[in-house]
Design a protein around this nucleic acid. Structure first.
Lengths: 216, 216
DNA sequence: ACTGCCAATCTTGTATACACAAAGGTTGAC
DNA sequence: GTCAACCTTTGTGTATACAAGATTGGCAGT
């Protein structure tokens, strides 16, 4: 637990939302949350305001907070932006790569290889996250890194759904290989292009995602 | 004034920060703010938490809130991301352009022309903002539009400084012309490329910006 | 029986009060 | 004279109380 009850609550509620414990559209009652976490309403309100600012919930004046339901179309838009930001990160990484970043990328990349070979979807999900974070860091742009991490977090649950799709693991890892090659070769444009297509959801992958969401 | 004191305060304090009334690094005393705006500390705290979530201030546990000083390097990074997002917006706009968006872009573009011809830096500053917003809207991606608008708002004060640089007005408008041509021609790649260079700050423009900031 | 209006209750929004932690100043000891 | 420790003061963090608005259910009228 953080030193600050408000922030701890924010993380707690955020996780609950991202893990669908609080369903989209559900109303979040301040008193109920306060009782559940054993605190008063004040820190709960602070947490809710922050989540509103992040965009996870919507607070309608005098009508309480509801969990936002992004809907397939909006999720597609978010992936579109994510693809663009990751592309930028990749191109910067290719230009500015230093020894430490190179090693971080290599390390996370080989962990992905092991998980993919083992067909362990959950492990790959985690290693994949670390791999992408290594690229953000390699961009050497603090602001970009923060933006990527934030958006990545919001898209986390949908990424997880994506990996369930048949063959996605090996396809994903193959794409990683090409991305790493481009970055290490210093080819910024190629790294950007590859990352854009890797992260974006196009064609049948979009319908796969919608189908997975509906199945939930 | 909004129906909600907290949100009203957030906007009020945000404007004060963006207009340098609250200088970067300055400590924001909750009680002082409460007195100044004639409200209690509770809504002030709510406003501060939201500004912290947005990234305009930093709340250090038990040590209060301070206005974040982005510093030239971070501002550069923010422009870099902004350029990328605007590039995406432009390329989508070129692909998806419809009648209403086309008219909105034409209208704001011609207002920019008038301000530029008159050499009215303040008017151009405003019209330029509308022009860019028209492009965001033309992308037909709600999420992208929101992200662009938010980042645009944070960069607003620095954009203003940029326009003070000699000849920047006419150069900027000339770039607008090319951008409009590319979008209307449906050339997404070209629109993206042009917007990226238009928005980004490269080479001497960066030193211009740093110089303007130092002069403040 | 259905619809519209009013009232009661529940929930949010704001204020105030109290507790606790940190920073700075002052005093005492070495 | 200098350094450290303690105390005071200031300001944040949390809780509770009170007020205002929204929603829902019931009652009455058509």
């Amino acid at each position: 637990m953080s030193e600050n009850v408000g922030r701890w609550l924010r993380d707690e509620i955020e996780n609950a939302i991202l893990s669908y414990e609080f369903a989209p559209g559900e109303r979040l009652d301040e008193t109920v949350l306060a009782n559940r976490f054993g605190v008063s309403r004040t820190p709960v309100r602070e947490a809710l305001m922050q989540l509103d600012a992040i965009g996870l919930i919507e607070i309608r004046p005098r009508r309480g907070a509801i969990v936002i339901d992004p809907g397939p179309h909006r999720i597609y838009e978010m992936f579109e932006v994510m693809a663009e930001l990751e592309g930028l990160a990749g191109s910067l990484a290719a230009r500015r790569l230093d020894k430490a970043s190179r090693e971080a990328i290599t390390a996370t990349h080989s962990r992905c290889e092991q998980s993919a070979a083992a067909g362990d979807s959950d492990a790959y999900y985690y290693d994949n996250e670390e791999f992408h974070k290594a690229i953000y860091a390699a961009s050497r742009s603090d602001f970009l890194q923060e933006q990527c991490a934030q958006l990545h977090r919001r898209l986390r649950p949908y990424r997880r759904l994506q990996l369930r799709v048949r063959n996605r693991l090996s396809t994903s890892f193959a794409e990683h290989c090409a991305i790493v090659d481009a970055i290490f070769a210093g080819d910024g444009d190629e790294a950007r292009r590859l990352l854009r297509t890797h992260v974006g959801i196009q064609g049948e992958r979009f319908s796969d995602l919608v189908a997975s969401m509906a199945a939930r």
